[in-house]
Amino acid sequence: MTTLGVWIAALLTLFILSFLYKDNPFYKFAEHLFVGVSAGYGVAFTYHNILIPNLYVPLFKQGDYTLIIPLILGIMMVLRLFPKVGWVSRWPLAFVVGVTAGISLITYLQSNALVQIRETLRPFNTFGNVVIAVGVLTGLTYFFFSKEHKGVFGKTAKVGIWFLMITFGASFGYTVMARISLLIGRMHFLLSDWLGLIK
């Protein structure tokens, strides 16, 4: 990092942190710059990693003319910016939705449903396996809304809520720690790289 780079990074860090006092022009400046720079990053990344290797080179250098189809569909997608012909963007959108639905159906069935069920159905030879089986079954019972949560069914769903609460608490704890570690990272940058107060 050059000295100028460190100063830019430090000032932008302070601009964002100034929001802790209240919303102000420095924060808004940094916020808008962040959106612009992130969008620009997306453009450059997409150009070099998707459009050039998957469209430009195969179509114009190697003569794979089937790629004219996604090129036309892509142009149709951009036409959404023009209200009079915007309806044609439904075609590429339909393709994207269809492919996503087809892939999701298989991958979710495999990895999220079948694998998770298989891993849950383990012999009750440890206390942990019992906890997992009970937690999954009661949790799924809570998510079943076609039957009123009353009686034994309601009590089972209640146990499911307890497991879900522990899950949310653990996830929340992890999220807090991740954010705090980012904050420590920024403070370390300011005090070490910028001000040189700590080594």
């Binding site: 997409t46 998707i50 790629l67 189809i69 569909l73 892509g74 142009i75 951009v78 393709f95």
Partner: peptide, 8 residues
């Protein structure tokens, strides 16, 4: 094709 259309 999906990647290319996503880029657009």
């Amino acid at each position: 094709w999906f990647l290319i259309i996503s880029a657009f």
